[in-house]
């Protein structure tokens, strides 16, 4: 796999796994997500252990409103769907479709992040600072770590999209887009758990 070969006509059906480098990236990234799972599991465990430790601060029942969180959930789930469309287009060799759907994913991710920042500002106004109580610290750490992952994903995918805006699908960039979309799905799955464990169990 030497030169940046561009052969849109003859791309294999799985361009992300066509080279050894691509295969390594694919597998390595799955392992990385395994580690990330433990990372979030630890944060969930911490949150579950501390969610009743509200001291004199507000409780989750005082704060959480499911309507806002429901909108955020829908936005993030949709962004996962758009990244699936992008991958389908990549496998079909349709570069334009890949780029457009990936930008849609980034856009939805940014919307989600905006809502999350808004949510945090509302909570802080309501008296739930980062240091208010053990519940507050563990809540902001868990949800904030997820938000940090969303931010990193947005920056990462945007970098790829700008870098390869005219490159076409190659055996070099296909694995990059593919693992970025894997990452995005992972963030989405973590959010589903946050929605359940933090918000549904907290209202």
């Amino acid at each position: 796999m030497a030169e940046a070969v561009k052969h849109e006509q003859t791309l294999p059906s799985h361009p992300e796994k066509a080279t050894l480098e691509g295969k390594n990236k694919f597998l390595g990234f799955w392992f990385f997500l395994g580690g990330e799972t433990v990372l979030f599991a630890s944060l969930f465990g911490t949150y579950l252990g501390l969610r009743n430790g509200v001291a004199d601060g507000p409780t989750s029942q005082d704060l959480f409103h499911l309507d806002l969180v429901f909108i955020m959930t829908m936005i993030l789930l949709t962004s996962s769907l758009t990244s699936v469309f992008a991958m389908i287009n990549m496998k079909k060799g349709n570069f334009k479709g890949l780029i457009i759907w990936m930008w849609a994913t980034v856009f939805l991710g940014a919307c989600f992040l905006g809502f999350e920042i808004y949510e945090f500002i509302v909570y802080v106004d309501y008296g739930l600072g980062f240091t208010t109580s053990a519940f507050a610290s563990s809540f902001y750490t868990l949800v904030g770590t997820h938000g940090g992952h969303v931010l990193f994903g947005i920056l990462w995918i945007s970098t790829l999209l700008i870098r390869y805006r005219k490159a076409g699908i190659t055996l070099t960039n296909a694995p990059k887009f593919y693992v970025a979309s894997l990452y995005w799905h992972f963030i989405d799955v973590v959010w589903v758990f946050i929605f359940t464990v933090v918000y549904l169990m907290g209202v």
Binding site: L39, S42, L43, T46, G49, L50, N52, G53, V54, A55, D56, G57, F130, T131, T132, S133, A134, F135, A136, S137, S138, T141
Partner: peptide, 24 residues
């Protein structure tokens, strides 16, 4: 995660381990 929590507790005033405000 453990080191992250300890860092946030020491440097940014988080309260996971502060028993008086609900920590453990």
């Amino acid at each position: 995660v453990g080191l992250l929590l300890l860092m946030l507790e020491r440097l940014f005033g988080a309260t996971y381990f502060a028993v008086d405000v609900g920590g453990n």
